[in-house]
Amino acid sequence: MTTFLGNLDESKLKKLKEKVSLSFKMPIDHSKDWEKCSLISNFFADYCVSSFYKKKEIKSILSTIINELIENAMKHSYQDQNEINIFLKNCEKEIIFITENIATNDTANNLIHTLNQLQTKDIESLIINRMKNNLMYNQEQSEIGLLNIIHNFKTSISAKITPIDKTNLNIVEIITRLEHGQ
């Protein structure tokens, strides 16, 4: 069954993806193509800000957000199906990013857990706790990427998780919306 988290429904999501301002799709190998993350996020940011007035600041914010989203998608991609699809929709008052990747059930459940935590807890203390735990248990991943962008840039995040028949894999879509003043 498809899981929806956050406040964006199916029809809205479909409409968003039909006509995107920009989208980019590529198989990305975690170990080999890491630098491409930064390259792609800077490009999306540049593309987006060329129509803005306060370019420098917005570029920095957008690049930071997209980079975390792509890193997140890349780290949580199932190794044999590592294509990542990134969508950008430039609306009048908000910028919407959607990242799409294939993930295992475990990974998808982790995401659901994180997003559910957001509803109830103070995000800042969640981040600080994760930082502390990270050192204590010497975790390999930082696990604060999504939390950080929600907390720092007043973005809202929703997600759609669609199981792929007869596998333990899912299509994970993360929808990030950022309001802007211009």
Binding site: T64, E71, N134, L135, S142, I144, N148
Partner: peptide, 17 residues
């Protein structure tokens, strides 16, 4: 420092601790 990702922030946090 123009950009630092969340992994980097985590590492910096470790140093602060």
């Amino acid at each position: 420092l123009e950009y630092l990702n969340s992994s980097g922030i985590t590492s910096l946090a470790r140093i602060i601790i």
